[in-house]
C-alpha cells in the first residue's frame, strides 16, 4: 500500500455567507504536494470564494484551512501560507502603476529587499520562462495584450518558487489558441517547480490539460471528486451536464 502524502492544503467544512446569501456550505478539499486539482462549477457557485478563503483573503464563517498541517488562522500563519503560495488572478491584477518587471519581482523588491538591479535580472529570467522577451520588462501592464498580461501575472506568481499555486480562471477572456498556450505554460511551470496547483475554471479544454484531479463545486459543496480520466464516465449527472455543456439537467443555468 502506498503511503499517502500529507496534504499541502486542506479545507475542512468551510462555510461563507455574504449577508443573507450562503455561498459555501461546508467545502472539504485536500491537495497533495505536487498534485494539480481543478475545481469546476457553474458561475456564481463560490469557486472564487473558495480560493479566497484558502488564501486568507476572506475569513470563513465556519470551518478551517490547514496549510502544511498547520491551521492558517492567525495573521502570522496566513503570512506564512502566502510566503509559500502564488496566485494568478482572473484579470491578472497587475499593478498598473508599475512596470512589468517591477510587477514580476514585487516580492523580491518589497518583501525580500533584493536590490533593484538583481531583482530586474531575475524578473527578466522569469519572463523568459513564460516566453516573454526582455524588451517587455520596461512596459506598463496597460501596454500589453490580455494574453501577455496573463503571462506576466504567471511570472509574478512563480518567481519566488511557491509550493502551491492558485489559478483563478486562467484562460477566461483569451482566444482558444492563446488559452492553449497559457495552459501549456501553466503545466510546464507547475511541473518545473514541482508545486501543487488549485485551478478554478469552467473551460473544459483547460481542465483536461491541467488537471490531475477534478472536483465539482455545486451549491456550496464539493459534490464529486475524481481523477481527470474519470470525467467522461463519472456516472454523475451533474458532471455529465457540465462536461457536455447542456442547459438541461440537474444544474440550473445561472441566468
Amino acid at each position: 500500500m502506498i503511503v499517502q502524502n500529507a496534504p499541502i492544503i486542506e479545507l475542512r467544512g468551510v462555510h461563507k455567507a455574504f449577508g443573507p446569501k450562503q455561498v459555501l456550505r461546508g467545502v472539504d478539499l485536500t491537495v497533495a504536494p505536487g498534485k494539480s486539482l481543478v475545481i469546476i462549477g457553474g458561475s456564481g457557485t463560490g469557486k472564487s470564494v473558495t480560493i479566497k478563503c484558502a488564501l486568507g483573503l476572506l475569513a470563513p464563517d465556519k470551518g478551517e484551512i490547514l496549510f502544511d498541517g498547520e491551521p492558517a488562522k492567525s495573521a502570522k500563519a496566513i503570512n506564512a501560507l502566502r510566503r509559500r503560495t502564488g496566485m494568478l488572478f482572473q484579470g491578472g491584477a497587475l499593478f498598473d502603476s508599475m512596470t512589468v518587471w517591477e510587477n514580476v519581482s514585487f516580492v523580491l523588491l518589497y518583501r525580500d529587499h533584493v536590490g533593484r538591479a538583481e531583482a530586474k535580472k531575475r524578473a527578466i529570467e522569469t519572463l523568459a520562462k513564460v516566453r516573454l522577451p526582455a524588451s517587455a520588462a520596461d512596459l506598463r501592464p496597460a501596454e500589453l495584450s490580455g494574453g501577455m498580461q496573463k503571462r506576466v501575472a504567471l511570472a509574478r506568481a512563480i518567481i519566488a518558487s511557491p509550493e502551491l499555486i492558485f489559478f483563478d480562471e486562467p484562460t477566461t477572456g483569451l482566444d482558444p489558441i492563446t488559452a492553449d498556450a497559457v495552459n501549456n505554460l501553466i503545466v510546464e511551470q507547475v511541473k518545473a517547480l514541482g508545486a501543487a496547483a488549485i485551478t478554478i475554471t469552467h473551460d473544459m479544454a483547460s481542465v483536461r490539460k491541467i488537471a490531475d484531479e477534478v472536483a465539482m463545486l455545486h451549491e456550496g459543496r464539493i459534490i464529486w471528486r475524481g481523477p481527470v480520466s474519470a470525467l467522461d464516465n463519472s456516472g454523475n449527472a451533474h458532471i455529465d451536464q457540465f462536461v457536455n455543456g447542456r442547459a438541461e439537467g440537474p444544474i440550473q443555468p445561472a441566468i
Binding site: K52, L55, G56, L57, N79, R82, R83, T85, G86, M87, F89, Q90, G91, A93, L94, F95, D96, F106, V107, Y110, R111, R156
Partner: peptide, 21 residues
C-alpha cells in the same frame, strides 16, 4: 479601482500590506 480589479488582493498574496505600501 485597485480594489475592484483585485490588485489589493494580489498585493496581499504577495506579502505586501496595503496600509504600508
Amino acid at each position: 479601482a485597485m480594489r475592484v480589479t483585485e490588485q489589493i488582493d494580489a498585493l496581499l498574496t504577495l506579502s505586501g500590506r496595503p496600509e504600508r505600501f
